[in-house]
């Protein structure tokens, strides 16, 4: 197995004491107020995600799941409530520390891929490591390994516009895991993909989760949610259900 994926295996030891939850969200609110009307996009959410879990957040559009995701990814700030990421109170962090959290602790996969068009696949994957200050040689090696994980090491020197949607999303997945973050957040990662590419990307998530990665994924497709261990449903900014998927439940028992 590659170096990229080995980094984070330690908390999975069966005899380890219960680790800090990766996500610990309490009474989270996000209210948009344009002076005319108030929109309560996230309206009192409590959520606890332990290390190694694979959680799908479901909901119709406008249910607040994307806003929720942006807050979890430190891309947006909540109006009120507490958010601890890997034990750190995010609200207490300054601009620089937030950058560091986004860089080190979170790997983001977007629906629109969000690769930088002027850079090759490898350069895109190297980008988070560049901001982390990883030396060039190590960066090259880790980017190669990450692209190998997503099966794209042969296309490392292609620019995004020379890759299919599925391939672009796999590059984005490689980019999200390259700094060995505690959490991979995927915002409708298969929303722009055909069924074959969807299957490829989801297989990679399964594989990563099997190796101990914590994954939180947003979707409105039942087939996608069915791949996760746990499904959280949202409506009108609140969590309306939180259930475990039966067959896969046993698989990650060690984590709890």
């Amino acid at each position: 197995m590659t170096t990229v994926l080995d980094d984070d295996t330690q908390p999975l030891e069966p005899w380890a004491p219960p680790a800090t939850p990766v996500l610990d969200v309490r009474d989270l609110h996000k209210i948009y107020d344009d002076g005319v009307q108030q929109v309560r996009a996230v309206d009192g959410v409590d959520l606890l995600v332990e290390r190694g879990e694979y959680v799908a957040i479901m909901g119709a559009s406008g249910s607040g799941k994307s806003t929720m995701m942006n807050i979890l990814g430190c891309l947006d700030v909540p109006t009120s409530g507490e958010y601890h990421l890997d034990g750190i109170d995010v609200a207490s962090l300054g601009e620089r520390q937030l950058s560091r959290v986004r860089n080190q602790d979170i790997g983001f996969v977007f629906q629109a891929f969000n690769l930088i068009p002027s850079m090759t696949a490898r350069a895109n994957v190297e980008l988070p490591m560049m901001y982390a200050g990883v030396p060039l040689a190590e960066r090259r090696e880790r980017a190669r390994a990450a692209l190998e994980v997503v099966g794209l090491d042969q296309r490392a020197n292609h620019r995004p516009n020379a890759l299919s949607g599925g391939q672009q999303q796999r590059v984005a997945v490689a980019r999200s895991l390259v700094n060995a973050p505690a959490l991979i957040l995927a915002d409708e990662p298969t929303g722009n993909l055909d069924s074959r590419s969807t299957a490829e990307v989801l297989d990679i998530f399964d594989q990563l989760n099997g190796l101990g990665r914590t994954i939180v994924l947003i979707t409105h497709e039942d087939e996608v949610a069915a791949r996760a261990q746990r499904v959280v449903r949202m409506r009108d900014g609140r969590i309306v259900s939180d259930e475990w998927n039966e067959p896969r439940d046993a698989m990650s028992g060690a984590a709890r």
Binding site: G73, L75, E95, R96, S99, R100, V101, R102, N103, Q104, F108, F110, N114, L115, I116, L127, P128, Y131, A132, R175, N179
Partner: peptide
Amino acid sequence: TREIGIRKALGATRGA
């Protein structure tokens, strides 16, 4: 601006 957003999401500081 979008590229700036992507870079920030990946952990670029304001200074970078």
